[in-house]
Simulated scan of single mutants.
Amino acid sequence: MTEKQIYQIGLTMINGVGDILARHLLQTLGEAEAVFAEKQQLLERIPGIGSVLAAEIKRPEVLQRAEKEAVFIEKNHISCYFLADANYPARLRECPDAPVLFYFKGNTNLDATRIISIVGTRNATEYGRELTESLLKDLSQIIPDLLIVSGLAYGIDICAHRSALRNQLPTVGVLAHGLDRIYPSSHRSTAVEMLERGGLLTDFPSGTEPDRPNFLRRNRIVAGMSDCTIVVESAEKGGSLVTADIAFSYGRDVYSFPGRVGDSHSKGCNNLIRQNKAGLITSAADLISALCWDVQEPITPVQTELFFSDQEPLAEQNPILRIMQKEKEMHINQLALALDMPVYQLTTLLFELEINGKIKTLPGNIYKLP
């Protein structure tokens, strides 16, 4: 760890100086060391600084904390990325509020040719999990070096990381705390596995607790790291929508899987599409086409037959109707088990049947014949 890097870390530890103001200081004074070397009276004259922040910059505790952090990252083999460094990720550098400095532990290229962020609700349904797994399985077959970014949170985030690992895709988790802990602790084994194929990234120093505001702050990195942000499943309000809005403000592509009208777990996704903030996708093929990625082999998704002839006897028309003919009503999970079919595929078929008046839907994902 060089003295220059200690000044760079120190720049991020000044109370009241965030990324935008730190960037302004760098533009004014040239480098981090010059910020600390400048006289207090001259610092006060810099627009946005004033006497209070100038006094904070001159506090000796700032560089003492930076030295302590330098010992921690060196001991734990953590890489430090500074905004002015050549190896700072190009996509993230373009963002106006990009972190002046962040920490990374892992083994992957943060400037990979293709990077996507996948986010969604913490209360993921089976539908959302299966969409995530299907998407990454198909993408891995056509883009084996695709980097997957998410937030290591419950629900869609951890599903994205685990699906990426299962399909041999590198994956990076952006944390809302320091690298001296993993939150939630139940995701520790996945996080450790990610260090071998991907990694963990944060702009928070060690000792930082996973407080609520930190999760909102880390969302800008999730959005800024990638070519596009995909919202798999989201309620009407939620952190994944914040990430989507940030990506949209950066001019990055946003995509979303649609859900059933009235489904509380998909209201956020449907709203993004309705507001023209997100493009609608249903498969890996849709995503690749929307991003105009030049890939060697086109993806040919297998489509389940949706239509059937009204002239055929009911028992021969459709396997869903054949099963429901024997039951008065069935929950979607029961149908999925009986048909040996993923819920996300079944949802599409049920929707088609409902439109055609072949079945009726009841509250609680219960279906029955008219």
Rank of each mutant, 00 (worst) to 15 (best):
T2C: 10
I6W: 02
T12H: 05
M13F: 00
I14A: 01
G18M: 14
D19Q: 07
L21R: 05
R23G: 13
L26Y: 08
L29R: 01
L29F: 03
A37S: 12
E38T: 04
E44G: 05
P47T: 06
P47A: 12
P47K: 04
V52Q: 02
A55K: 07
E56S: 13
I57P: 00
R59Y: 02
L63W: 04
Q64E: 14
R65Q: 12
E69H: 06
V71N: 05
V71M: 00
I73K: 08
E74P: 01
K75D: 10
S79K: 14
L83E: 00
D85H: 05
A86V: 06
Y88K: 07
P89D: 05
R91A: 06
V100F: 00
Y103P: 02
G106K: 09
G106T: 08
N107V: 00
T108N: 08
T108V: 14
R114H: 14
R114S: 06
R114E: 05
I118N: 00
T121S: 15
Y127F: 15
R129D: 04
E130L: 12
T132E: 09
L135P: 01
L136I: 13
S140D: 12
S140G: 15
S140N: 15
Q141R: 15
P144M: 09
L146V: 01
L146N: 00
G151V: 02
L152R: 01
A160N: 05
R162Y: 05
S163V: 11
A164I: 01
L165F: 11
Q168G: 03
L169G: 03
H177I: 06
H177K: 11
S186A: 14
R188A: 15
S189P: 00
T190Q: 10
V192F: 12
E193V: 06
M194L: 15
L195V: 03
R197N: 13
G199I: 01
T202G: 02
T202A: 07
P205Q: 03
S206I: 02
P210R: 13
L216C: 07
R217Y: 14
R218G: 08
R218V: 10
I230T: 08
V231H: 03
V232E: 07
S234H: 00
A235S: 14
I246W: 03
A247V: 01
F248G: 10
R252S: 04
D253R: 07
D253N: 11
V254F: 08
V254E: 01
S256D: 07
S256I: 05
P258Y: 11
G262L: 06
G262I: 01
S266V: 07
N271L: 14
I273S: 01
N276R: 14
A285H: 02
A285P: 00
D286F: 06
S289F: 12
S289T: 15
C292R: 14
E297G: 01
T300H: 14
E305S: 11
F308G: 10
Q311R: 09
I323P: 01
K326H: 04
K328L: 12
H331M: 05
I332K: 07
L335R: 14
L335F: 13
L337C: 13
M341C: 15
Y344P: 00
Y344H: 13
Q345F: 15
L346K: 08
T348D: 09
F351G: 05
L353A: 08
L353Y: 04
N356E: 11
G357C: 09
I359T: 08
P363I: 01
G364H: 06
I366K: 15
I366H: 13
K368A: 10
L369E: 07
L369Y: 09
L369T: 07
P370F: 11
